[in-house]
């Protein structure tokens, strides 16, 4: 699988993503610089990593969504290419209109950095096809602006289209207000577009995908993409 990792000014999880794809999972991986448009035709996957692109000025992801590389990524996504946004990358995908909804400040107003459980809600996507139905993954979150918001009608539509890929839950897979760390509507932790080739999530699977570190639950998402390409 040929992968590209986008580097915005302020990205800080780009090297983690690069490390997992290239060194842990032995995939061909390239950097994509935000200032240049790129020919992505030969790529299988583009990852928008976490961080604080452009210092999160104005709104998280707002300025990055107008970077030259985003023109190439929008074209790539429209042609069916797989695009994966993690944390700040998710925020960029929402701001660019590739994914529906938006992310607002956590209900607690605090930056939250901890391991959480998420339940796989749809296994029929390139990002989740190696998962079991309702599988619970333990993946860390680290964000201040991670409360997913969309109007109730659109949330219902996402549900009907199977676009909700992950929900925050407890260790047994139960979804409740207590297991929702940031106040996201519907406990949504990750969503895809209607075609299922663009996905964004707040938890960081790249932080739990190297066997040298504690936990490898995040690997299954990258493995799904690899076995699908």
């Amino acid at each position: 699988m040929k992968c590209g990792i986008v580097v915005f000014p302020g990205s800080n999880c780009d090297h983690d993503c690069f490390h997992i794809l290239k060194h842990v999972l032995s995939q061909e991986t390239h950097w994509l610089w935000h200032k240049e448009e790129a020919n992505l035709e030969s790529f299988d996957l583009v990852v928008l990593p976490g961080g604080f692109s452009y210092g999160d000025y104005l709104r998280a992801g707002a300025i990055a969504s107008f970077s030259p590389i985003m023109n190439s990524i929008v074209r790539f996504a429209k042609a069916g290419g797989k695009v994966f946004g993690i944390c700040n990358g998710f925020q960029v995908l929402l701001e660019s209109g590739l994914l529906p909804g938006t992310l607002i400040q956590n209900q607690s107003r605090k930056f939250i950095c901890k391991n959480v459980s998420v339940r796989v809600e749809n296994t029929d996507t390139p990002f989740t096809r190696n998962c079991r139905e309702n599988q619970v993954l333990e993946i860390p979150i680290a964000h201040h602006q991670g409360s997913y918001y969309i109007d109730p009608f659109s949330l219902n539509q996402l549900e009907e289209n199977g676009q909700i890929l992950f929900r925050y839950c407890d260790a047994t897979g139960k979804v409740s207000a207590e297991s929702n760390p940031n106040g996201s509507v519907g406990s949504v932790a990750g969503v895809s577009n209607e075609q299922k080739n663009v996905m964004g999530m707040m938890p960081h699977p790249e932080r739990c995908a190297d066997p040298k570190l504690m936990g490898t639950d995040g690997q299954i998402i990258f493995q799904s993409l690899i076995s699908n390409s």
Partner: peptide
């Protein structure tokens, strides 16, 4: 286009 996110 930029200054407001009209979703919210």
């Amino acid at each position: 286009r930029l200054l407001a996110n009209t979703v919210i």
